[in-house]
């Protein structure tokens, strides 16, 4: 499969701040690729280099096999972009703005434009000055999704949307993928990435620290096991191979533990010998993966998420 986005050893510094430190990102044709990282990790810088708005100090950034900087204008006919903080011209209506952005790119699909305006419940006759943040975001999303651009670059596109509209966005992203389009979805909303993306890259301090399908990534991480057994274990469970974070209830029959992928089978059969009553085994969530890279890091300002929609600030 060809790659629609490929960067190699991308470096960019602003003064003394290193924004990108050898970033290598690949997005294959037809996939929705999650680009995960907290603010300041280099996501937006990468996006702006990919869009030819900034030039990397060194390294390569290619879209459809062509240089993102020198062929920017030409490439943009095939790229639709939604920024995270959408600024619109205050005295143009939402409908006018959709048309302007789409026409500057090279046109849009009329029927899809109509459907999207309806699905996103956008009033296109209102002046952009009176739009809320969510409505401004919808304008940019409609302009991007109504185009026939084979590559969508989305920089935290749902930050102002309510859960209902987020669902609409998910559906439309899915529909775009069914049409064979690809997308780079930069986000820090983990549930959104988990739902929408085929593959994920986690960026930290300007480098990709983890990249692969969710299944692959989970394989690298530990599953959580919760078992209720009849007889308490005779030995210390934490000495079992590959097992960590053991919590045993007072009765000794309520057992929680984390186990790495290679030892799940062995752990389960040992539990079985204690007389299994119930067993739940969950693979690592994206949140766990993410926190494995960021949770201990205080310097980057990563925080402990309190919900499924963990937002890293």
């Amino acid at each position: 499969m060809d790659s629609v986005i490929e960067t190699q050893d991308l470096r960019k510094t602003f003064g003394s701040t290193v924004a990108l430190d050898g970033l290598a990102l690949t997005v294959a044709e037809g996939e929705v690729h999650g680009f995960l990282g907290p603010n300041g990790s280099g996501k937006s810088t990468t996006v702006r280099i990919l869009l030819g708005l900034m030039r990397a100090d060194s390294g390569q950034a290619r879209l459809f096999g062509r240089d993102a900087w020198t062929d920017a204008t030409d490439l943009h006919r095939r790229v639709a972009y939604v920024p995270g903080d959408v600024a619109l011209w205050p005295n143009l209506t939402g409908g006018e703005t959709i048309d302007v952005l789409a026409r500057l790119r090279g046109g849009l699909d009329e029927r899809r434009r109509r459907d999207l305006v309806e699905r996103f419940e956008l009033d296109p006759t209102k002046k952009a000055r009176s739009y809320s943040k969510g409505n401004r975001q919808k304008v940019a999303l409609v302009a991007a999704l109504a185009s026939d651009a084979p590559l969508l670059i989305l920089d935290e596109p749902t930050s102002g949307l309510d859960p209902l509209m987020e669902r609409v966005f998910q559906d439309e992203l899915h529909a775009a993928r069914s049409r064979g389009h690809s997308a780079l979805l930069s986000s820090h909303i983990l549930s959104e990435v988990e739902r929408a993306c085929d593959r994920v890259s986690i960026v930290r301090s300007g480098r990709i620290v983890e990249s692969g399908s969710l299944t692959e990534l989970r394989h690298l991480s530990r599953s959580t096991v919760h078992a209720i057994v009849r007889t308490p274990a005779a030995q210390d469970i934490s000495t079992w191979p590959g097992v960590e974070d053991v919590h045993v209830g007072e009765s000794g029959t309520d057992i929680r533990l984390a186990v790495d992928a290679a030892h799940v089978g062995e752990a389960v059969s040992r539990l079985d010998r204690l007389g299994l009553v119930t067993l739940t085994c969950e693979p690592a969530s994206l949140e766990d993966l993410f926190l494995a890279h960021y949770g201990t890091e205080s310097a980057t300002g990563a925080t402990t998420p309190s919900s499924e929609d963990a937002q890293v600030r």
Partner: peptide, 15 residues
């Protein structure tokens, strides 16, 4: 500066 130039340059509009 208002952030309205970037979306335009991200279309097929050349600098």
């Amino acid at each position: 500066r208002a952030g309205r130039g970037e979306p335009v340059l991200a279309t097929a509009t050349s600098r």
